[in-house]
């Protein structure tokens, strides 16, 4: 499995992991991005993700293809949420399977870092005080 997808509904990590099982692989590394209840000490009550999906799927797939080329990995996938998310919801899931663990760790790190930099996805934070704002990955690492 080697796909980048968007989902408007709650993510289902068990099924993504299942889709990636491979008897030739000895290691699987997964990254889950969760909705946090604060940003810079400011209480956050929910998030909204908007994506330019047509381009995002192409750019996200390109990131996965690069990971397959650069690291000795067998399967790579990434699913990103859109829409309104509550605290604790899964925002993004990255999974990498490989014959050996080193490549899986490296590829997983590469994928989430590049996704955050390149895929056209925007996040609006809604704060406990009623304020809200679009934030970006240059401000918040």
């Amino acid at each position: 499995m080697s796909d980048f997808l968007f989902s408007h509904d709650l993510l289902d990590p068990a099924s993504y992991r299942q889709a990636q099982t491979d008897s030739a692989c000895g290691g699987f590394v997964c990254f889950e991005g969760w909705v946090r209840n604060h940003n810079d000490d400011r209480p956050v009550i929910r998030l909204e993700y908007q994506a330019y999906e047509k381009m995002g799927i192409r750019e996200g797939q390109r990131v996965l293809d690069e990971a397959l080329e650069q690291f000795e990995v067998s399967g790579v996938s990434c699913i990103h949420r859109t829409g309104t998310l509550e605290i604790g919801d899964l925002a993004v899931w990255v999974g990498v399977s490989a014959h050996h663990r080193d490549a899986a760790f490296s590829a997983c790190r590469y994928i989430i870092d590049e996704i955050k930099l390149r895929v056209p996805i925007w996040k609006k934070e809604h704060y406990a005080d009623g304020d809200s704002g679009w934030i970006n990955n240059e401000q918040a690492k």
Binding site: H80, A91, I115, K123, A140
Partner: peptide
């Protein structure tokens, strides 16, 4: 596709301005 700001536009192009992104 990400493009240069000085790219020339053609009739029928699809254009999207990309504010700083915030996935993940």
């Amino acid at each position: 596709e990400f493009s240069d700001w000085e790219s020339r536009l053609s009739d029928g192009d699809s254009v999207v301005f990309i504010p700083p992104v915030a996935g993940g």
